[in-house]
Design a protein around this nucleic acid. Structure first.
Length: 778
DNA sequence: TGCCACGCCCTTTTT
DNA sequence: GGGCGTGGCA
């Protein structure tokens, strides 16, 4: 038996006595720093069990929140086995979003939210933003919907309304206007977005309209949170508001595994917990039960380079295990071939495929790996990528259902009004839309007014907004929907879906297309009907009524969980997707600077904070491995259609030498220069982010500055320089400038290049990169 | 109105 | 390399 397959652990034993006491028995605020592999979820389940069995808490007064459905499901099943189904069924165990949705359905009336509200996902949000931009007459090339929505989302995650946003710059003003319309649109549609689910519960709790906030607060005597480092500001405020009186808040997390800052997670929630709760009991779980000694050591080496972290000394009693293999490959194909070789070898030694995972930083890396695996017929599954519920045909079908439940939902109506094609084009929709917004109606209501206009014989073409010719087609859609909606109460959800697909002509249209693509779409629609049937069966088993509302909520709050089967397949996924999982053998690919740490096309250097998040990502990846870890990096990588040079990631240099061995593939060995570089590089001194290779291979690649060198994006034209110039133009972000051709604009950022240049936003023509010498002060 | 060709831009992702 | 959005054309 190879050393690395030797069993090294037997699952987390009981906590040591003082820890156990603190974790299960302490009262008041409790913060548990649970290092990777230290048995974090156990903390919550055992505490809950103790609260119920020994502390006399009512199961219904305990709320345990997680981030994913999967985590919630696991927690629930563990609690069921600890406490029995009968007790566990009364506990509130769920994701932040599902829990808040449940509360809002019961208490949302106080903030005029009908209990049939629907939840808009990212796509719906974007559609609302696009429409708002159109209504405001703003060009969506100059104001990219994605970016605008990003700003709105950021604001909502901090519970800031449009009035609380900065204004003054062109973009800021646009954001504020779009945000206002966006909110109005959601309210009119009786819809909420993911941020609202949290935000509106916070509103209920903090403002207590009709006593509903107090009612929610009374409900819960204990609140427990998993993966606390991933909470955003709004979620933190929710937790504080919920526990304001009794302060029975138990949070478990690991700041070293905070990898979601980019979507709003605020690591200050965990790092600053002690500040907000000075009386909190703090426990650190530092013993790792998962991985070999060398893996733990490597992980610790990597994470210790962080600028800021709560110190934790991860250690293990497990055997040292085999050295980590750091392998240089020539390019991504060579890397894939090596990965395949390792997998074949491991399988031959008896490692089962579901114990093997291949990680990468971005999905784009998966293609080459897939090809290599397919070539030798190794079964694999990819987690992530395009999700089932995000496919266009699935979203269309769901949009029909959502309109039936909530006819005011314009986003959904607009999605299906011309699906399948019914001759209702952009022009018609634009007119309809403006009729609707000018009268404060939903689109469907606006269609109704066309009828009134006809009945009254007063419908002048101007009043109808030029909609006379499309009227018949619009009425046909309205009648179709009315007909389907009338039958909803008498049909099962799956029958409703089936008749929607049939009577709308959607299926017929796809069948007529008769292409491989249309066949795939039909297949997906059949699967969707199947998923509704599954839901109906589950609801029945749980003794609940199966409703269309119920199904839609589940789907909107669902993830990719179902797709990750226990089947005997090798798993391919991004490092983000790997959090919370563990495998016997992990292959971490693409360990190059620019890939991990990742840097996109732009030459902007990441700042130290971004680098630290990438470092934590590497830490998460490493700590997923139980007994064997193989890390690969390449000399050249083709990605996104072009080639970039690869150098070993700076993080590799922080793995202690006695934990790893360096290797090269046969292909890579031929390039002796690359191998020599890869073999001999040294860790950079602390605090110096210059890559070690940069000095050695100076001038070998012309790039926009050394990696890691800080690009200054403000005060670039500082006074020391301006002294030499004839016209000292000092600009910084936000400065107003004038360009001879584009007119007045606003500086977005300063670009470091051979000649000073800036990105300027011109309201007349959008964002442009211009040389500073063509600008003057506004 | 609908189709196709062209060009752009590219992280990570739950709910 | 590829998905998506746009703009030109039938």
């Amino acid at each position: 038996m190879a050393p690395w397959v030797k069993p090294v652990l037997g699952g987390p034993p009981a906590l040591n006595a003082p820890q156990a006491a603190a974790v299960t028995h302490s009262s008041g605020p409790l913060l548990v720093f649970a290092g990777a592999g230290s048995g974090k979820t156990r903390v919550i389940t055992h505490r809950v069990a103790h609260l119920v069995t020994s502390a006399g808490a009512q199961p219904g007064s305990i709320l345990a929140v997680t981030f994913t459905n999967k985590a919630a499901g696991e927690m629930r099943s563990r609690l069921s086995s600890l406490l029995g189904d009968n007790v566990a069924k009364d506990l509130w165990v769920g994701t932040f979003h599902a829990t808040c949705a449940r509360l809002l359905r019961r208490h949302g009336g106080a903030i005029s939210l009908s209990s049939h509200f629907i939840i808009y996902d990212a796509d719906d949000q974007k559609a609302v933003v696009r429409r708002a931009l159109r209504d405001l007459g703003l060009d969506d090339r100059r104001y990219p919907p994605r970016a605008i929505l990003g700003r709105i989302r950021d604001a909502k995650q901090e519970l800031r309304g449009p009035e609380a946003l900065e204004s003054g710059s062109y973009v800021d003003d646009a954001v504020v206007k779009v945000y206002r319309l966006y909110e109005a649109q959601l309210q009119r549609a009786n819809a909420v977005d993911f941020e609202d689910l949290i935000g509106k519960v916070v509103l209920l709790l903090e403002e207590d309209p009709g006593g509903e906030g107090a009612a929610i607060r009374r409900r819960f005597g204990h609140v427990l949170v998993d993966e606390f480092q991933d909470t955003n500001r709004a979620q933190y405020r929710l937790l504080r508001a919920l526990t304001r009186h009794h302060r029975n808040l138990c949070v478990v997390g690991d700041d070293d595994q905070s990898i979601y800052a980019w979507r709003g997670a605020d690591v200050r929630n965990i790092r600053g917990f002690e500040h907000d709760f000075p009386d909190a009991t703090i426990v650190k779980l530092e013993q790792n039960y998962r991985s070999t000694g060398r893996i733990v050591k490597a992980a610790l080496g990597v994470i210790e380079g962080s600028r800021e972290r709560v110190p934790k000394d991860l250690w293990t009693d497990n055997l040292d295990g085999a050295p980590i293999e750091v392998v240089a490959a020539r390019d991504e194909r060579d890397e894939a071939a090596y990965v395949v070789g390792v997998i074949q070898d491991a399988r031959a030694r008896g490692t089962s495929p579901e114990e093997i995972a291949v990680f990468y930083r971005v999905h784009a890396q998966s293609r080459v790996l897939e090809e290599a695996l397919r070539a030798v017929r190794i079964p694999y599954q990819i987690v992530g990528g395009v999700r089932f519920y995000e496919r266009a045909e699935v979203k269309n079908a769901l949009a029909y259902l959502r309109v039936l439940v909530n006819p005011k939902s314009d986003v959904d109506l607009l999605r299906i009004i011309n699906t399948p094609a019914r001759g209702i084009g952009a022009k018609t929709l634009e007119r309809l839309s403006s009729v609707a917004s000018s009268r404060g109606l939903s689109i469907l209501e606006a269609i109704e007014t066309l009828e009134e206009a006809v009945d009254d014989e007063v419908g002048s073409p101007t009043q109808l907004g030029g909609l006379t010719s499309a009227r018949k087609r619009l009425f046909a859609v309205r009648d179709l929907l009315a007909h389907l909606a009338a039958k909803v109460p008498f049909r099962t959800p799956s029958d409703t879906l089936a008749s929607v697909l049939d009577e709308s002509g959607y299926v017929a249209t796809l069948q007529a297309e008769d292409t491989p693509e249309s066949e795939a779409k039909l297949e997906n629609l059949r699967e969707l009907v199947g998923s509704v049937r599954d839901y109906e069966r589950e609801a029945e088993a749980a003794g609940d009524a199966a409703t269309l509302d119920g199904y839609l909520e589940r789907v909107t709050l669902a993830a990719d969980v179902d797709s990750m089967k226990e089947a005997s397949r090798v798993t391919l996924m991004t490092v983000h997707g790997a959090k919370g999982l563990e495998f016997q053998l992990v292959l971490l690919t693409g360990m190059e600077d620019d890939m991990l740490p990742y840097r996109g096309m732009s030459s902007d250097a990441a700042d130290a904070r971004d680098i630290d998040e990438e470092r934590r990502l590497a830490y998460v990846a490493i700590t997923r491995a139980r007994s064997r870890l193989v890390i690969t990096h390449v000399g050249t990588r083709q990605i996104f259609g072009s080639s970039r040079p690869g150098r070993p990631s700076r993080f590799l240099a922080t793995i202690p030498a006695d934990a790893a061995v360096q290797r090269a593939t046969r292909e890579a060995s031929r390039d002796s220069r690359f191998v020599e570089r890869a073999r001999t590089f040294q860790p950079p001194p602390q605090g110096d982010w210059r890559h070690p290779f940069e000095s050695e291979s100076a001038g070998s690649e012309a790039r926009g500055g050394a990696p890691g060198e800080r690009f200054v994006d403000r005060d670039f034209f500082d006074d020391s320089r301006s002294g030499e110039a004839d016209d000292p133009l000092v600009v910084r972000r936000g400065s107003r400038v004038v360009h001879a051709h584009f007119g007045e604009g606003e500086v977005q950022r300063v670009i470091q290049a051979s000649e000073p240049a800036v990105m300027v936003f011109f309201p007349s023509s959008g964002e442009k990169k211009v040389l500073a010498r063509f600008l003057r002060r506004a």
